[in-house]
Design a protein around this nucleic acid. Structure first.
Lengths: 134, 134
DNA sequence: CTAGAGTCTAGACCCAGGTCCAGAGTCAAG
DNA sequence: CTTGACTCTGGACCTGGGTCTAGACTCTAG
């Protein structure tokens, strides 16, 4: 262990090989060490870092956010990490609120639609056609 | 009224001129009538249609969805319109649920983070680094 | 008539986050 | 040694919903 190819790394972390190279190009992973042949070699540290990225993505962070988190993690800035997480949470909550708003509008229209009859009686079509919408 | 340029149409509907042409290219608007000069000319019907598109977008429909809605609207299929709306609502609700899940995870980590001290004591960093995350 | 505003087209470019490709070189098993 | 799997590179391509550009033409107010 602790000395494996990009294929093994990718498989262990559950991402595609191209993704690993993409992350390297974009500064999320340090440039990997190379064999004489030019093949990349990885150790446990890179695997941990790649898994960190995958988990952060699952928590809703963008790759840009994750670059920041990795820096903060390296400098062990707990306060800043917490702040970044709070901003991301606020962002997620805002997106939920917007979807709730839109969903509520749609739900109301659906409830009022008989589902048959004249198009003019369909509140959904009317909402899309009429002048006022919220 | 009922005979205006693309600029007037775009302004009346609250979209950009390029967007009007983009919609035409992508089948959301019928190819417009033309003057001898090649300039597009529009009437009230196109304005209504463009506003329909704008409102549907505000309700969370994709342009693909809207193409469908416009067809259904033309054939006055109230039942199908309602079905499309229900599918979209289900989609929105699923997105909300996913964001709720992610937000809850993040909120828990933030609440448990003291915001200072050793990096090892930061549950956010730990969650990103440790083996298990749901 | 002229200046300035409006419009035309095809096609490039933007965002994020990858994915895929060709052509060449390398590694490991048998 | 051979064969098949693996890896390398740079660059093109993808999604969705537009946005912008260049260069040419047209329309309108004064």
């Amino acid at each position: 262990m602790s000395n494996f190819s990009i294929g093994k790394l990718a498989e262990s972390a559950g991402v595609a090989i191209d993704t690993v190279r993409y992350y390297e190009r974009n500064g999320l992973l340090q440039p990997a060490g190379r064999l004489a042949s030019g093949y990349r070699r990885y150790g446990e540290a890179e695997l941990r870092r790649l898994r960190f990225i995958r988990r952060a993505k699952a928590l809703g962070f963008s790759l840009e956010d994750i670059r920041t988190l990795l820096e903060l993690s390296a400098e062990r800035s707990v306060a800043k990490v917490k702040r970044v997480a709070q901003l991301k949470l606020a962002d997620i909550e805002a997106r939920i609120a917007e979807l709730e708003r839109v969903g509520a509008g749609l739900r109301k229209l659906i409830a009022a639609c008989p589902g048959h009859g004249r198009a003019e009686a369909c509140p959904i079509l009317n909402a899309l056609t009429d002048e006022e919408l919220h």
